[in-house]
């Protein structure tokens, strides 16, 4: 075991406290220590987005964050989105639009989409948002969704249906 540090954070509303090897990533904390296997380890280098979770409400790649630096944060994973058996609207939309095949990237896609919709509602621009667009909520057109979701790869190529699912919930 290497150098250890005590970390306390909230995961899906529950307090989680553990002494961890400094080398542990947030993704490994979630999967190996908190036993939440929803967030996936795809590339483990911040290039695929399968590990996307919400950190204090903002989407991040859990594979590139060190758990020791997460002390005091609030993390939401795919497991924290539904209300019991009542699915989150994006989970339902992914089912309705057949927005996945193998499902490996889906938890990351859905967490990313939750934040993408929140960012657009908060008026955050993307690189395809017109520069002279007045401040205020940004309409999630198909090009906007494609740009804003570009950090989430889908090897099955379900992109067309992912875009429809995200747009339906954004409306």
């Amino acid at each position: 075991m290497g150098a250890m540090t005590a970390v306390t954070l909230h995961i899906n509303g529950e307090r989680f406290s553990r002494e961890l090897d400094n080398r542990t990533t947030l993704l490994d904390l979630l999967r190996e220590h908190a036993h939440l296997s929803g967030a996936k380890k795809g590339c483990d280098h911040g290039q695929c987005g399968a590990c996307t979770v919400l950190l204090d409400g903002r989407r991040v790649n859990a594979c590139l964050l060190l758990a020791v630096s997460m002390d005091g944060t609030d993390v939401t994973t795919i497991e924290g989105l539904s209300d019991g058996n009542a699915l989150h609207p994006l989970q339902q939309a992914f089912l309705d639009h057949d927005a996945f095949q193998c499902g490996f990237c889906t938890p990351g896609q859905i967490c990313s989409a939750v934040a993408a919709i929140a960012e657009a509602r908060a008026g955050w621009p993307s690189v395809v948002t017109a520069q002279d667009e007045p401040e205020g909520p940004v309409e999630l057109t198909a090009p906007e969704v494609r740009e804003r979701m570009s950090g989430n790869l889908c090897r099955c190529g379900a992109y067309v249906n992912i875009v429809s699912a995200v747009r339906e919930v954004a409306r």
Binding site: G49, R58, R59, P125, Q131, S150
Partner: peptide, 22 residues
């Protein structure tokens, strides 16, 4: 966005949102 739009444009043209958030 208003006074230094190239800063916003340059940032938004790099990486995806997950990386820019961190």
């Amino acid at each position: 966005r208003e006074r230094y739009p190239i800063v916003s444009e340059a940032l938004l043209s790099g990486a995806p949102a997950q990386l820019r958030n961190a």
